[in-house]
């Protein structure tokens, strides 16, 4: 049945896309290079959320808190300490994962909806701290002009750096999805009670998934700083969490790359529509409603349904 982990047929288009992305920057105006890099960052963020939402079935309602916490950690290490870049690069996602662990410890004890509500309140607490602690975090101004080493000084070099780190992260996430850990997580999403009955410590498993997801959200946070050189409280505001959630829904959370596609669409919308209106949250609401009624499986799910499985990204429904 050709059930190998790296199915070459589906791997080749990905390789082709990767190569195209490699040669893009010199061909594109700066602005588009920037937007595509932003899609990479946001795409990774959405993929990280999908580890717990699509795979784990958890209501991780405030994912941006971890993304922002990591971005701030990275920014603070770069501006307030003389530690080398790579330490910040590793420490920031770890800080996000530790926060994920602490918040997760409380959340996994609760049923789904309460899980989501507690997350929103704890995440908002982190936002409030960042927002209020003016002399440390810069409050609502944020931190700007974060210094980058020479190899990340130009937009093009940042683009390549982000592309490569993102590709590695996605590959790791893919491997995790295909591992016993990932398949067990799917089983937990389907039926936690039965999982307990077959000897799986459901809470510990969910907690581990949260730690992994928040770590990758942290990676995305670091990449955001590399691209933007600034941080601001909106990075951990609940509106962004809602956006990430919609990206997963929009792209299709039962597919591997769906959330990435959703992120690309959302970034485009925010860039090309968002600038004309102050009512961005209203647009978000409308997108959400349209999704629920017309594309319950998301764009990727819809495409797979229509054109079969030759579209990039293997189907993630169940262990296939």
């Amino acid at each position: 049945m050709g059930r190998t982990i790296l199915n070459w047929k589906s791997f080749l288009p990905l390789l082709a896309i990767f190569l195209i992305l490699l040669i893009l920057p010199p061909l594109l105006p700066r602005f588009y290079t920037y937007i595509i890099a932003l899609m990479f960052v946001t795409g990774l963020l959405a993929m990280s959320l999908n580890i717990v939402v699509g795979h784990g079935g958890l209501f991780q309602f405030h994912h941006a808190a971890f993304y922002g916490a990591s971005a701030y950690t990275f920014a603070l290490i770069l501006t307030k300490t003389s530690l080398p870049l790579w330490i910040g690069f590793i420490a920031a996602p770890i800080v996000a994962a530790v926060i994920g662990l602490v918040i997760g410890l409380f959340c996994v004890r609760l049923t789904r909806l309460y899980f989501g509500m507690l997350q929103i309140s704890l995440g908002s607490l982190i936002w409030a701290i960042v927002f209020r602690w003016y002399h440390f975090t810069g409050g609502d101004d944020g931190i700007h002009g974060i210094p980058m080493p020479p190899f990340l000084s130009s937009l093009t070099s940042s683009y390549y750096f982000i592309l490569i780190v993102m590709a590695i992260c996605l590959a790791v996430i893919y491997l995790i999805f295909k591992s016993p850990f990932g398949t067990t997580l799917l089983a937990i999403r389907d039926n936690p009670q039965r999982c307990e009955a077959v000897g799986i410590n459901v809470r510990r498993h969910q907690l581990a998934a949260i730690v992994i997801a928040t770590f990758f959200a942290g990676m995305a946070g670091v990449l955001f700083v590399v691209l933007e050189r600034s941080v601001f409280p909106d990075l951990l505001f609940w509106v962004l969490s809602l956006e990430i959630f919609i990206m997963c829904l929009l792209g299709g959370w039962f597919t591997f790359l769906g959330p990435f596609l959703g992120a690309a669409i959302m970034v485009s919308l925010r860039t090309f529509v968002g600038i004309y209106t102050e009512y961005w949250t209203l647009i978000l609401g409308i997108i959400l409603i349209l999704l629920i009624f017309f594309l319950p499986e998301g764009v990727m799910g819809f495409l797979l349904e229509k054109f079969g499985s030759q579209v990039a990204g293997p189907r993630e429904r169940g262990i296939e």
């Binding site: 982990i5 491997l175 995790i176 295909k178 591992s179 016993p180 850990f181 990932g182 398949t183 067990t184 089983a187 999982c195 077959v198 000897g199 799986i200 498993h205 581990a208 262990i319």
Partner: peptide, 17 residues
């Protein structure tokens, strides 16, 4: 899923299931 749990491998991360 049950057999993997029985083999104590539910937490294995980097090995295809």
């Amino acid at each position: 899923v049950a057999v993997i749990s029985q083999q104590r491998k539910s937490n294995t991360l980097f090995h295809p299931a």
